[in-house]
Amino acid sequence: MTRRPVDTGAPDRLYTVTGGRSRADDSFDLVTLVVAECQPSAGMQSEHVRILELCRHPTAVVEIAAELALPITVIRILLGDLLAVGRITARHPRLAQSAATHPDTALLQEVLHGLRNL
């Protein structure tokens, strides 16, 4: 896959998009599914508008990042804004963030079933 010209991580652009903020909401995992809870409204930042449009159906954080061609960290900041004002909800992954415990057998059986049916 070729990278698009805007996603060079150019600090100036990122600074503008996030209004100078750099601390992202770490609760958003790469595969947290985001759902819009409202329509975009007039005067919203264009990135917020695009996120709300994308998330009419559940959409993973990583897909939002790819679609908007912005780094994950920037997307987490933008999602934090929307979450704070109730414009989105987040469906976080069930799996613990630690590798110390294995996921339960019931979950893995569901995964296996899904894969075998491909």
Partner: peptide, 26 residues
């Protein structure tokens, strides 16, 4: 911000198939 107006078709512009509304676990 750098992007200007976004066409309503943006989500599917690249042929991205949305997940079902019941999708809850990534």
């Amino acid at each position: 911000s750098a992007t200007s107006d976004t066409p309503a078709s943006a989500p599917t512009a690249r042929g991205r198939k949305p997940l079902t509304d019941a999708a809850e676990t990534g």
